[in-house]
């Protein structure tokens, strides 16, 4: 799950950076980079979870 974690960490770093600096570019990055990053990370994570649950005949 390294990829998901890395994506998440980058997203959170951007968000923290924005909140600390209020810079316009970080503001943009938060919305258009961090959020998609997180979305993709969560999607990948969920895919993993669903796959595992299927394997265990839960879903």
């Amino acid at each position: 799950m390294k990829l998901e974690i890395v994506l998440t960490l980058v997203a959170v770093l951007i968000a923290i950076g924005f909140v600390l600096s209020r810079n316009a570019y970080l503001m943009g990055a938060t919305v258009f980079v961090a959020t998609p990053l997180l979305v993709v990370a969560v999607v990948y994570y969920l895919a993993r979870v669903i796959r595992e649950l299927r394997d265990h005949d839960v879903l």
Binding site: L3, V31, F32, V33, P36, V39, V40, A41
Partner: peptide, 27 residues
């Protein structure tokens, strides 16, 4: 120890692709 397989590269690429797509689509 990261033995970088093609599958990894693919995952990363697809992730980044989706991110760009997501951002771009939003815009």
């Amino acid at each position: 120890t990261t033995s970088f397989s093609r599958r990894d590269a693919l995952r990363i690429a697809s992730a980044l692709g989706l991110v760009s797509l997501g951002g771009g689509a939003a815009w």
